[in-house]
Design a protein around this nucleic acid. Structure first.
Lengths: 224, 224
DNA sequence: TGATCCGTCGGGAAAAACCTGACTTTGGCT
DNA sequence: AGCCAAAGTCAGGTTTTTCCCGACGGATCA
């Protein structure tokens, strides 16, 4: 039997190296590629066509979610294992809808990683126990045709504004950054919080934290 | 020669296991303890008295900074290597003042970890190149006598208010939470931003992120 | 060929934040 | 004992921001 071929993606080289060290000791697992950002991950995965692509969701540049969506469209045979610190439901669902076959938390036990890999390699689906509880109950049928079911389907503008708000920018500052009117910013914000059921700025910040918009000091400076 | 004895602390078991895997392959390095929270870290370190304690700064419960300060007071012979995602200057300085002998970023290359360990074990001080630049220029002479030179000497109240602001709460919400007048909250905020040289809310959020006030979705719920 | 969604704005009312100034208590210093 | 600085507390009044309601053109889709 040929080994399970895996690519790893995490924006922290140290964490990446750690996971690699963890996995490469295992007999029938082979690390065939690594990346520390979304674009590179896409490239590496396309070049190596691994059995499983493990990727952190919070990536600089192209986000993990974006990577997942593109892979689902371009290389559906590659199975995705999402690996992240975020256990918020709002984040799990989109990831699974984007085609992820597994969702593991960084706070998970180390041996869960191998377990998840084997489960997915065997064609299964593996969710961390902690999130499995949350993810399953509210589940839905299976409509991946038109695109977006319920929550979290913000328009790009809405999402952008919400992120900037979470980062502490005022409507005026956002208006300047995006070169639009304050009024427009207010509209996006209003529509976004309406869709997501958020009320206070603190809600928005929490949402942003869950989505990985914050907590990555070094990165940022993306949209222009 | 006896090996370098090390304890590891990181709140993500997976990351912890990864670093362990990275380090334990090295000849003269021995992992003598692990922890995933600040209190446990303190216990483990006190029990094992390692040569070097590697600890992530953003920890649930007792923060890494707090751990560093207590260790500096109780076990100065244990050398600390701070390991974190935060490369903000505002975070490096307090950590070094708290006695850390090294500061490494998770975005650092993997071999830097071993390098840092050896440097510190040899009695040296190791800063990640990326932060060394920032840390050194603005530096200071060597006044560790009275305590706090310039920044970050917020009163408890100021710090508390600033944290809540970073989390997105309005002055009014904070006033309610702390059972004080809005006006008082405004005063603390004003004094805090004055001391820290912050200007916009976004500045405050960034400061909070650097201090680990945000970015830990699952955790929180501390002060009452 | 309407309905709907997205991006874009304005006016005016309401809320929040900001600036200036002030009072009290605690503690150290002379 | 008197002095003074720092920390905690608050108010009045002005400025800024946000919030609510409404609107319009373009694209898309049935």
């Amino acid at each position: 039997m040929c080994p399970i071929r895996i690519t790893l993606t995490d924006d922290h080289p140290l964490v990446l190296a750690g996971m690699k060290a963890l996995l490469q000791d295992v007999e029938d697992i082979e690390i065939v590629g690594e990346a520390t950002d979304g674009q590179t991950a896409l490239d590496v995965i396309q070049q190596t066509t691994p059995d499983i692509a493990i990727l952190d969701i919070s990536l600089p540049g192209v986000s993990g979610l974006e990577v997942a969506r593109r892979l689902a469209a371009q290389m559906p045979q590659v199975r995705l294992l999402a690996l992240t610190v975020h256990e918020d439901h709002a984040y799990v669902q989109p990831m699974l809808q984007a085609g992820a076959r597994g969702y593991l938390l960084k706070r998970s036990a180390a041996d869960e990683l191998e377990r998840a890999v084997r489960a997915i390699a065997g064609g299964g689906l593996y969710l961390d126990p902690a999130i499995a509880e949350k993810a399953l109950p509210s589940s839905h049928g299976a409509h991946s045709s038109s695109g977006t079911p319920a929550t979290s389907e913000l328009t790009p503008r809405e999402s952008e504004v919400l992120r900037l708000i979470a980062q502490g920018f005022s409507n005026k500052e956002i208006a300047n950054q995006l070169s639009i009117s304050i009024k427009t910013v207010e509209t996006y914000k209003a529509r976004a919080v309406e869709k997501l059921g958020l009320f206070t700025r603190a809600d928005i910040v929490r949402y942003g934290v869950a989505l990985g918009w914050l907590g990555h000091p070094a990165k940022s400076a993306d949209q222009a």
